Simulated assay, not measured.
Amino acid sequence: MNLSTQIQKQIKRFPEGKTFGYPDLDISREDFQSTAKILERLQGKGLIKKMSNGVFYKPIKTAFGELKPDYNEQLRPFLYENGKRIAYVTGTYLYNQMGLTTQLAVRVKIASRSKRININRGALKADAVKSYAEVTENNYALLGFLDAIKDIRKIPDTTVQNSVKILSAKIAEMDEKEIVRLIKYALLYPPRVRALLGAILDDLSKPENITMPLLNSINPLTKIDLGLNDVDLSTVEKWNIV
Rank of each mutant, 00 (worst) to 15 (best):
L3N: 01
S4R: 15
I11T: 05
I11M: 05
K12W: 03
R13E: 13
R13I: 04
P15K: 15
T19W: 03
Y22I: 15
D24S: 13
I27K: 02
I27C: 09
R29Y: 09
E30K: 14
D31K: 15
S34M: 03
A36N: 10
K37C: 00
L39C: 12
L39A: 13
G44D: 11
G46A: 10
I48N: 02
I48A: 09
K50Y: 01
S52Q: 04
S52A: 13
F56K: 12
Y57P: 07
Y57Q: 12
P59D: 08
I60M: 07
T62M: 02
L67T: 03
L67I: 10
K68F: 10
P69E: 10
D70T: 05
E73S: 01
E73C: 00
Q74F: 00
P77I: 04
P77H: 08
Y80E: 14
N82C: 02
G83Y: 13
K84D: 11
R85E: 05
R85K: 11
I86L: 04
A87Q: 03
T90A: 11
T90D: 08
G91F: 11
Y93T: 12
L94G: 01
Y95I: 00
N96K: 14
Q97S: 08
M98Y: 15
G99Y: 02
T102M: 05
Q103N: 02
R107G: 02
A111Q: 11
R113L: 06
S114I: 12
S114L: 04
S114Q: 06
I117F: 01
I119R: 09
D127M: 08
A128Y: 08
A128G: 07
S131Y: 09
N139L: 10
G144L: 05
D147Y: 14
I149T: 01
D151H: 09
D157E: 14
T158A: 09
T159H: 11
N162M: 12
N162W: 05
N162D: 14
I166D: 01
I166G: 02
S168F: 00
A169D: 14
K170S: 13
A172H: 08
E173F: 06
E173N: 06
M174G: 02
D175H: 06
V180A: 13
I183M: 03
A186S: 15
L188Q: 14
L188C: 03
P190K: 10
P191L: 07
V193K: 03
R194K: 15
A195P: 02
G198K: 08
A199P: 07
A199F: 10
I200N: 02
L201A: 04
L201D: 04
L201N: 04
L204G: 07
S205H: 13
P207M: 10
P207Y: 10
T211G: 00
L215G: 00
L215R: 14
N216P: 00
N216S: 14
I218S: 05
N219A: 05
N219V: 04
N219H: 09
P220N: 10
L221M: 11
T222I: 11
I224W: 12
I224E: 11
L226G: 14
G227L: 10
G227R: 12
N229M: 05
V231P: 00
V231T: 14
D232E: 13
D232L: 09
L233M: 13
L233T: 12
T235W: 01
T235A: 10
K238S: 07
W239N: 05
N240I: 04
